[in-house]
C-alpha cells in the first residue's frame, strides 16, 4: 500500500506541475455548464434539478476521460521510465493502482469544482438531495470507467494521440449503444423474424450512458454499481496483462 501511495503522489504532482490538469478542469466546467444552460434547457425548465446538467456528462467524459488518462502509461513508455518503474521492488499492480488513483483524484477535483451548480439549484428551490447525490455518483463512476478504459489502452501504445483516439472510440461505442434513439431502433426492428428487443436490453446493460442517466434520475441500482466497479476492475486487470505481455 505504501508503494501505491508513493506512485500516486508522484503521478498527482505531475498532473498539477504541468498545465494539463488545470486546462482539463476548466474545459470540463465550461462544457458541462454551457451545454446544460444552452441545450439542456436548465433555465426554461425552471425546476430545481440537475438532470439536465448530468445528461451531458457521459458525452463530455467520452473525451475528458481519455484526455486525463492518456498519459498514464503512454508517457511512461515514451520516456522509457517503464524500465525504471518496473525494476523497482514494487509489483506492477501497485504502479497501476497508484496511477489510476491519481487520475481518479483529478476527476474528483474536477467534479468538486462544479459544486456551484448544487448551490444554484438549492437556492432555486427544494431539490431532492438524494437525486443530486446519485447523479454525482453516476457521473463520477462514468468518468472513472472512461479513465480505466484509457488506462488499459495507454499501456498498449507509446503514442498519446493514438491512445486518445482509440479510447474515445471505445467510450463512444459504450455510450452510444445505450442512447435512446439506438435502443428504440433495436426495439422496433427484427432480424430473420427474431425481435431484437432483447439486444436493446443487453446494450443498455453494458452502456455507460444508460447507467448514468438512470443514476441521474435518482435510480441507484445495485446492478449499476456492480457494472461500473467490475468494468473498472476489468480494465485495470487488462492493463496489468498488457504490461506483462508487452515485455514478453
Amino acid at each position: 500500500m505504501r508503494n501505491v501511495w508513493i506512485v500516486f503522489k508522484r503521478e498527482l504532482i505531475s498532473y498539477f506541475t504541468t498545465p494539463l490538469a488545470y486546462v482539463l478542469i476548466i474545459i470540463f466546467c465550461f462544457l458541462s455548464l454551457s451545454l446544460c444552460l444552452f441545450f439542456g434547457g436548465f433555465i426554461e425548465r425552471g425546476d430545481a434539478s440537475l438532470s439536465s446538467f448530468f445528461y451531458f456528462h457521459p458525452w463530455i467524459y467520452m473525451i475528458f476521460g481519455p484526455a486525463i488518462g492518456m498519459r498514464l502509461w503512454s508517457e511512461e513508455h515514451r520516456m522509457g521510465t517503464t524500465e525504471l518503474l518496473l525494476t523497482m521492488p514494487i509489483s506492477p499492480w501497485e504502479a497501476i493502482l497508484g496511477k489510476f488513483l491519481a487520475a481518479f483524484t483529478v476527476l474528483a477535483v474536477t467534479l468538486l469544482s462544479t459544486i456551484g451548480m448544487v448551490f444554484t439549484v438549492l437556492s432555486l428551490g427544494e431539490p431532492d438531495v438524494g437525486v443530486i447525490f446519485s447523479g454525482y455518483l453516476g457521473s463520477f463512476l462514468v468518468g472513472a470507467s472512461s479513465i480505466a478504459i484509457t488506462c488499459a489502452v495507454s499501456a498498449l501504445t507509446r503514442n498519446q494521440i493514438t491512445c486518445l483516439l482509440v479510447s474515445v472510440t471505445i467510450c463512444l461505442v459504450l455510450t452510444l449503444i445505450g442512447f435512446p434513439p439506438i435502443s428504440d431502433l433495436l426495439r422496433s426492428s427484427s432480424f430473420l423474424g427474431i425481435k431484437l428487443g432483447f439486444l436493446a436490453d443487453i446494450c443498455n446493460g453494458v452502456s455507460l450512458f444508460w447507467h448514468s442517466t438512470e443514476m441521474a434520475r435518482g435510480l441507484m441500482r445495485i446492478q449499476s454499481l456492480i457494472y461500473f466497479i467490475s468494468l473498472i476492475g476489468f480494465c485495470l486487470f487488462l492493463t496489468s496483462v498488457i504490461i506483462r505481455s508487452k515485455r514478453a
Binding site: 508503494n3 520516456m79 525494476t87 523497482m88 521492488p89 514494487i90
Partner: peptide, 24 residues
C-alpha cells in the same frame, strides 16, 4: 538502463526522493 530514462517533469531532488521512497 541504457537510455537513462527519467521523469522529465520532476526536479533532480524530487526524482531521487521518489526513487529513494520506492526503495523503502
Amino acid at each position: 538502463p541504457e537510455s537513462a530514462p527519467l521523469y522529465l517533469d520532476m526536479t533532480v531532488e524530487g526524482f531521487l526522493g521518489f526513487t529513494a521512497e520506492l526503495r523503502g
